Amino acid sequence: MAKARGTVRPIRFLGDPGLRTACDPVRTFDAALDRLIDDMFASMYAAEGAGLAANQIGTALRVFVYDCADDRGRRHVGHVVNPTLELADGDLLTEPEGCLSVPRLRFPTPRFAHAVVSGVDRRGKTVRVEGTGYFARCLQHECGHLDGGVYIDTLSGDARRDAMRAIRAARA
């Protein structure tokens, strides 16, 4: 993983109410937003993650960062401010997924093979990010965080019961 400028902040874990609250839109594009994005990259790399939403480090703003590969092995690095998941389509793939806020656990999670996110960058310039494979999974995962969700919310039936059991056991 790369090293980023910025300060490493502690990751919030499942059970923290900030993870279950929808984030507010960014309205001010200034040095504080630059610091937040730099801190998010530093925190993500320190935790060896592929993506990180602002509420995972205790800031309730609609921002996420990412550094992950797509299904062709191409690396994507960037950030999106005020993202909207515009499209999630293609095959529904159930693959192991993890989360920095649910450490050391991975569960088979259904996600679409293709995703498109629109938003702006740290300067307010429009961005559109399109991903396939693991990168599409990352985009869907991070947008879910900003809406107050955690990836285990997408699980159902036996998979959800198994995940909840594993999470309770990990806390004990």
Rank of each mutant, 00 (worst) to 15 (best):
N82M: 00
A50R: 09
Y45R: 09
R122A: 12
G6W: 00
A166P: 08
A47Y: 05
L139M: 09
A172T: 14
A50H: 11
F41C: 07
P103L: 04
M1W: 11
L87Y: 15
E86F: 07
G18L: 14
V116G: 10
E97S: 03
A54W: 06
F135V: 11
A88N: 00
G90W: 02
I11P: 05
F29V: 04
T132M: 09
P10W: 03
R106A: 15
R122F: 02
D158F: 14
G51E: 01
A88M: 07
R165G: 04
A88P: 09
R168F: 11
Y45H: 10
E142S: 04
L100P: 00
D162M: 12
A22Q: 13
R128G: 09
M44D: 05
D71P: 10
M44Y: 00
L36E: 03
R75S: 11
T28A: 15
E48G: 12
V63S: 08
T21W: 05
G6C: 04
V102E: 02
G148A: 04
A60E: 15
D147L: 15
A31W: 11
C138I: 11
P103M: 06
L93A: 12
P17Q: 03
G15C: 11
H79M: 13
L33M: 10
F41H: 08
A166L: 11
T94C: 01
V116F: 00
G144Y: 06
V26P: 02
L36S: 02
D16C: 03
